[in-house]
């Protein structure tokens, strides 16, 4: 017996892809290929290896940028969460960064660092870092007072309180901050490939658009969205596996 939710998910996918296919067959626009054409193009690109080569290039700035953002972001976030002085000094910057359209910095970055990898890594970093920092700081600051008090009453040193209470208590929120950071990093990575220089998947999109090979263009876009969504879903699953108990843990019903 297949579950209702799985059936509905499949039905929902069939409906959407079916609508895509029909809209492509009508066609609603000369630049709107059918679902099957796009998927054929996707398979072709996968088989001849273009797609793998493209991703090897696209993922480079993404991975480097996200790693840098994670290390710096969590470090700064923990510090902001622990020290009111540091919070006063640094949190406004990240709050403004979070609300502001940082993409506008891209032309400047290109002027300063050229059109190479450095600029792209920077774009990923400025997109991914604020949410990581703010989530970490918030989680550290909001560690339940009662378990910190408990640790102190059982003679915990300051280092014990940080390592055994605050960090574990904050880690679910830190992790979800990382997930949001990766999500923003994807936006940054693609934006930089479309805006700075067409490389990797951005190159496939731009090139196939210029020669009006729309199925390939849609296939490339489909694949990057699919990749991002799958990867973020895996992260979310990991979050449930690692921290599943935590969400209900604090309530004292």
């Amino acid at each position: 017996m297949i579950s209702r939710s799985l059936v509905l998910k499949l039905l929902s996918a069939v409906l959407v892809f079916g609508a895509w296919e029909i809209a492509g067959r009508v066609p609603v626009s000369y630049a709107f290929p059918t679902f099957l054409e796009s998927m054929t193009a996707l398979v072709a690109m996968t088989l001849d290896g273009t797609l793998f080569a493209a991703y090897a290039e696209t993922l480079q700035p993404l991975v480097i940028g996200v790693l840098i953002s994670a290390f710096l972001g969590i470090g700064i976030g923990v510090w902001i969460g622990l020290s009111t002085k540091f919070e006063w000094l640094f949190s406004p910057i990240f709050i403004v960064m979070q609300a502001a359209p940082l993409a506008a910095l891209i032309p400047l970055l290109v002027m300063a660092y050229g059109i190479g990898l450095t600029s792209k890594v920077f774009v990923v970093c400025i997109m991914a870092m604020p949410v990581i920092v703010l989530n970490t700081a918030g989680a550290v600051r909001n560690t339940p007072a009662s378990i910190k008090e408990m640790a102190r009453s059982f003679l915990a040193k300051d280092s014990d309180v940080i390592l055994k209470i605050i960090i574990p208590a904050a880690s679910p929120v830190i992790f979800s901050g990382l997930r949001l950071g990766v999500s923003a990093g994807f936006i940054g990575a693609i934006l930089s490939e479309l805006k700075i220089t067409p490389t990797g998947v951005g190159d496939i999109i731009t090139y196939s658009r210029s020669i009006a090979d729309y199925p390939s263009m849609y296939a490339a876009i489909f694949s990057i969205i699919l990749l991002a969504v799958l990867f973020l879903n895996v992260l979310e699953k990991l979050e449930h596996i690692f921290f599943g108990g935590n969400h209900r843990g604090y309530v004292s019903d």
Partner: peptide
């Protein structure tokens, strides 16, 4: 403690 103050991850 009144609210038990258990470590939820332990």
């Amino acid at each position: 403690f009144q609210d038990f103050a258990l470590l939820p991850w332990a």
